[in-house]
């Protein structure tokens, strides 16, 4: 079986400043969930790095450390397009140079998409705001990819691109 990878278009989509939420779970299988403030994909299109604010995502970081399980949903509010990615080997990694700038670009790009929908700019920016000193990076290998745009195909597994 070939490894699951993202195609170029999917990479562009998840890096474009969409809304991102990630979930893990503890040993008792209680789920944890938090906002993600940035995302980058390695050139192999399988290794994905997420940026989170540790002040908001404490439980998620602890759960990933123990379970290594991660589910991440990406959604563009203006089109409702939604993808879910999963990984089984998630772990915390050191921040790379430029990660804080990446998160700032992500925050601004998301706000851009939200403005035409009638939201005020301060609100739109606040939704993905972060504290630079609290930024942490989580890396995982893509194991499963699901189409999750609302509709009859929601939840269907996408083959590698």
């Amino acid at each position: 079986m070939t490894a699951t990878t993202l195609n170029d278009e999917q990479v562009r989509f998840i890096e474009s400043g969409v809304s991102i939420s990630a979930a893990s779970r503890d040993v008792r299988r209680v789920p944890s969930v938090s906002k993600v403030v940035g995302c980058r994909v390695a050139t192999d299109r399988r290794q994905i790095t997420l940026l989170v604010d540790a002040a908001q995502a404490g439980q998620l970081l602890r759960d990933v450390e123990v379970s290594k399980a991660l589910a991440v949903v990406f959604c563009l509010p203006s089109s409702h397009r939604t993808l879910q990615l999963k990984g089984r080997d998630a772990h915390q990694v050191a921040l790379a140079p430029g990660d804080a700038e990446l998160a700032a670009r992500h925050r601004d790009a998301f706000a851009e998409d939200l403005l035409p929908l009638g939201y005020a700019l301060p609100f739109a920016r606040a939704t993905h705001e972060f504290q630079q000193e609290q930024l942490r990076a989580l890396c995982f290998t893509l194991s499963d990819l699901f189409e999750q745009t609302p509709g009859p195909n929601a939840g269907s597994r996408l083959e590698q691109g």
Partner: peptide
């Protein structure tokens, strides 16, 4: 099976 899921 312990796999988390997240949806909007």
């Amino acid at each position: 099976d312990g796999t988390p899921n997240v949806t909007l």
